[in-house]
Design a binder for these strands. Structure first.
Length: 407
RNA sequence: GCCGGGGUGGCGUAAGGGUAGCGUGAGAGGCUGUGGCCCUCUAGGUCCGGGUUCAAAUCCCGGCCCCGGCCCCA
């Protein structure tokens, strides 16, 4: 019998899934706080929807349903574009968030899987960079709410209009060029230079030198201005409001649908970007009326990976209280548990006739904060013993006091 | 798709042709009214499929999965 999961698909243990849920909730709260509304679309889309803007390599990464003209979504932006294209009556700006699984049929790698969660926010119908500013603040808030330190965080910005003019000027306007310079962080200056030299020879050094110029945002803006006035205006606007951001002239990001701003957030050097996004003013038009749009995607799996490195415990029970009973007192224990549950206190209860020792042992291992012990004596006098497992203190309280207890 | 490394109870490991052992975790009891210790017992394993051999966890072939990396990352 096969007991493995399929390649690139994972189980999440209770103690992991609990953390994931908590993280997702925090992300969602931040999205709502910024005025975004939820949108849910199917896991499958027609193949001609999915492949509208993508090449062959991308098509190969789609999980297709055999015998049908549909496949699993590989991101959340295409379904958004399809949705907006089919619902032209939406009020603009249309701000939607979605936190959902997507699937890509590719080789798994470190923190890359075939099934993973994306958390996206997009603003449809705003051409001004006010939208980018909002998204940057949102990203900052979301990361903070997840408990990550932003001490070493870097908010990186670039602009596609600049990149394209730049490439045109040096006559290197190809996917290869963009892919190469995007690797600067990964393989270093020398590595990129090697790549570029093979393709472009002599001028590689000059091109790279130009990209490396500029020590701070001001100097980089000047360079950008030489190539694209628009990119200069747009980036200046954003930086005016979100001062923490820094320009990175070699930031590309893979998505070929980006048309303007490109945004990327790194928490540390150890792991790559945890947030990515940008402006895609032409994508929606493929499915209907053109709408200027900008969006951001939180790399949930990477954030989860980082979070799990901090957390060691495998205690996972969500309940606060475990009700133990001795003798034949399940019914009284149940009664007590129900009182607490009606109060909204997560409460678990012992099910089997086993020694109190075992019950306390279990409660400890599961990570409950409190246990309640009931037996013949408690049933008769309508009381319970409430025990704080951490402080190792216990006290006796009346059953009617239970409904007003604070835990 | 390609290149490396790897896969032994739930987890971590030992045995490298000849009895699958240890630790930990799990369950029961010691001890059915007070917990994390201790003792005893129980269950649980060679990734899958072939081949070689008297005999395979061990050697060979194929597959699956995991970990790195390349390509790619819409």
């Amino acid at each position: 019998m096969e007991i493995n999961t399929p390649k690139g698909f994972r189980d999440f243990h209770p103690w992991e899934e609990r953390i994931r849920k908590e993280m997702l909730e925090k992300i969602e709260k931040t999205f709502i706080k910024y005025g975004f509304s939820p949108l849910s679309t199917p896991a499958v889309e027609f193949l001609n929807v999915l492949t509208k803007k993508s090449g062959k390599e991308i098509e190969e990464q789609i999980f297709k349903i055999e015998g049908e003209e549909v496949g699993l979504r590989f991101d959340l932006t295409v379904p958004l574009a399809r949705y907006v294209g089919g619902n032209l009556n939406l009020y603009k700006p249309f701000k939607r968030y979605v936190i959902a699984k997507v699937w890509r049929n590719e080789e798994p790698q470190k923190a890359r899987y075939r099934e993973f969660i994306q958390a996206d926010v997009d603003i449809v119908g705003v051409k001004e960079q006010t939208a980018e500013v909002e998204l940057l603040f949102l990203a900052k808030d979301a990361l903070e709410s997840l408990g990550f330190s932003l001490k070493n965080a870097r908010f990186l910005l670039n602009n596609r209009k600049f990149l394209e003019e730049f490439a045109k000027h040096f006559e290197v306007n190809s996917g290869f060029f963009f892919r190469s310079i995007d690797k600067l962080d990964k393989i270093g200056e020398k590595g990129v230079l090697n790549l570029l030299e093979k393709e472009y020879g002599e001028k590689a050094r000059k091109i790279l030198g130009e990209l490396k110029k500029g020590k701070n945002n001001e100097e980089k803006l000047k360079i950008i201005k030489e190539f694209s006035e628009e990119a200069y205006e747009e980036l200046s606007f954003i930086l005016n409001y979100f001062k923490k951001a820094e320009i990175n002239l070699s930031l590309v990001r893979g998505l070929d649908y980006y048309t303007g701003s490109i945004i990327e957030v790194k928490l540390s050097e150890e792991i790559g970007s945890v947030v990515g996004g940008g402006r895609y003013d032409n994508l929606i038009g493929l499915y209907g009326k053109e709408e200027p749009s900008v969006g951001l995607s939180l790399g949930f799996e990477r954030l989860f990976y980082l979070k799990m490195k901090e957390i060691k415990t495998k205690k996972y029970n969500e309940a606060n209280v475990y009700v133990c009973f001795v003798g034949e007192n399940f019914s009284y224990a149940l009664e007590v548990a129900q009182v607490l549950r009606r109060k909204g206190i997560a409460t678990d209860i012992n099910y089997s006739k086993r020694s109190l020792r075992k019950q306390l042992d279990y409660a400890n291992n599961m990570g409950y904060k409190y246990v309640i012990i009931v037996g013949d004596k408690e049933r008769e006098e309508k009381s319970v013993v409430l025990k704080d497992l951490e402080k190792r203190e216990e006290r006796r309280i009346k059953e009617e006091e239970l409904s007003s207890i604070k835990l």
